Amino acid sequence: MSVIMMIDNPHGSQEIYERVAAGRTLPIGGSVHLAGPGPHGGWRVIDVFDSEEEGRRFVRDELAPALRAAGAQGPPPPVEFWPVYRCVTGVPA
């Protein structure tokens, strides 16, 4: 079952996001990626993965090392997962 993964990083920024995302495409198991400023500051990323296992593998094997390489400070931000009930897309923002 597809899942939504949200990372709401209060210490994140567009600058760190750009360093981490440079040259990357959707990871294996990923189908949707959204990123932007969080509603209370920081940086928020929302992805849709084929399964929670794919999302956790991405965080562990790709994202965590990329954040360290980009100079992100502190512990990794918490990751939330929940099932996708419906996903509708249209013209990109």
Rank of each mutant, 00 (worst) to 15 (best):
W43S: 05
L67C: 07
D61M: 01
P39V: 14
P92I: 10
G29Y: 15
V32P: 14
G74W: 06
V84G: 04
T89E: 14
S2K: 08
W82P: 05
A93S: 12
E62W: 09
G12I: 00
A22D: 14
M5C: 06
D47G: 08
L67T: 00
G71M: 02
G74V: 00
G55P: 12
Q73S: 00
I4V: 10
G90A: 14
L67A: 01
F58E: 04
R60Y: 09
I4F: 14
R60N: 01
G41Y: 13
V79E: 02
S31K: 09
P76Q: 00
H11N: 07
I16R: 00
R24M: 08
I46P: 09
Q73H: 06
R44P: 13
R44E: 12
M6T: 06
V88I: 14
P65T: 01
N9I: 14
R57A: 15
W82D: 02
I4A: 04
P65N: 02
P39W: 12
E15L: 07
F81M: 03
E54M: 13
L67F: 08
G36Y: 07
T25C: 11
R24N: 07
S13A: 04
A66G: 04
L26Y: 12
E52T: 02
V32C: 11
H40N: 15
G41M: 13
F58C: 02
G38H: 08
Q73P: 01
V20M: 02
A69V: 06
A69T: 00
G41F: 13
W43E: 01
P83R: 01
G23Y: 15
S31A: 09
R86M: 12
E80H: 08
E53N: 07
G38D: 09
F58A: 04
V45T: 08
G90C: 15
R44V: 14
R86W: 09
P39R: 08
E54S: 14
A21P: 03
V88S: 09
E54F: 14
E54T: 12
G12D: 03
A64M: 05
Y85M: 15
S2R: 06
G23F: 15
W82M: 08
V59D: 07
G12F: 01
H11M: 10
V59S: 03
V88K: 08
A35R: 11
R57W: 15
G23L: 09
G74Q: 02
L34K: 09
M5E: 06
A69Y: 01
R19L: 11
V45R: 05
Y17I: 02
